[in-house]
């Protein structure tokens, strides 16, 4: 029987304080937070934390900011469950509790280095990917071309509106976006996110694709990326599951033999093509 590390409690959350709160859409709000210990969160882009409200519970939430931006970390929380509803009632100065960071990250320092990067973000999928986008932009010289594709359901579902505009104006970034259903406020393209892919030139030998969105998006995005000539191992995905414990014990996030909280949430597509429950 292992007797290592016998006092550490893997389930104990640490206190943090809310800095800024901002409503982004009807359902989503933005939170910046800082650990009360004064330490950095120590995450890499793509990782998640377990966020606790005592008395309500704990939920897995992606970290949306890049570790290159020190001091605080940011999350965007969709109000869909008990914990997220309670989080939406928090204001600046309020306490919440954090475990993590957990899981794998986008390979910003490995496979992505020196390559053209194409980010494909569907709806709330932009939340974890934003961390990688910021990381890449903060180390811009380390990468080739940067292409960001963003698709939202409707114009009012768009997240990070000001940052989207910044990316659009950035000289060495190609930014394209679309909405599934337009309204009178929208003069941009209408259509699902895959309609944006033919509009960009992809250097198939030298590109890494990073995709995050609803389960249905992957099926179509992957087909288009493979048709564009990318190999399976040039595609990274972030998958959502019920990551309850974050430490590979409770069983809820399993995809066949894989624990998303440990082996994911970021996967190289070539590693999960044989995993039946993955997509």
């Amino acid at each position: 029987m292992c007797k290592c590390d016998s006092e550490k409690d893997i389930y104990l959350p640490l206190p943090a304080t809310v800095g800024k709160v901002k409503s982004m859409t009807k359902l989503e709000s933005f939170f910046s937070c800082q650990l009360d210990s004064g330490e950095e969160l120590g995450h890499m882009p793509g990782q998640f934390v377990e966020v606790s409200i005592p008395g309500i519970g704990e939920a897995p939430i992606s970290v949306s900011s890049s570790p290159t931006r020190k001091g605080s970390f940011e999350m965007v929380i969709r109000n869909v469950g008990n914990v997220s509803e309670a989080l939406h009632k928090l204001a600046a100065g309020d306490k919440l509790f954090i475990r993590g960071p957990f899981g794998t990250s986008f390979p910003v320092d490995e496979a992505m280095k020196g390559k053209d990067i194409i980010f494909v973000c569907g709806g709330i999928g932009i939340v974890p990917v934003r961390s990688a986008i910021q990381y890449v932009l903060d180390n811009r010289d380390d990468y080739g071309r940067v292409i960001i594709l963003f698709g939202a359901k409707t114009p009012s579902d768009r997240l990070f509106i000001e940052e989207l505009d910044k990316w659009r104006e950035e000289k060495n970034v190609t930014f394209l976006e679309t909405v599934d259903h337009r309204d009178e406020s929208w003069s941009g393209p209408e259509g699902v996110i895959t309609t944006l892919l033919p509009l960009v030139k992809i250097d198939k030998e030298n590109t890494i694709a990073v995709a995050c969105g609803p389960p249905i998006m992957y099926k179509f995005v992957i087909i288009v990326l493979l048709e564009a000539g990318l190999r399976e191992d040039q595609i990274y995905l972030s998958l959502e599951r019920r990551m309850k414990c974050g430490v590979g014990k409770c069983g809820h996030c399993q995809i066949n033999n894989i624990y998303v909280c440990q082996d994911g949430p970021v996967f190289n597509f070539s590693d999960i093509t044989d995993i039946k429950e993955a997509l």
Partner: peptide, 16 residues
């Protein structure tokens, strides 16, 4: 299973 990767102290305090 409770020892691998992340050691579950709650389980092992009792177990030991």
């Amino acid at each position: 299973l409770f020892a691998e990767n992340h050691y579950d102290t709650h389980y092992f305090k009792r177990r030991q």
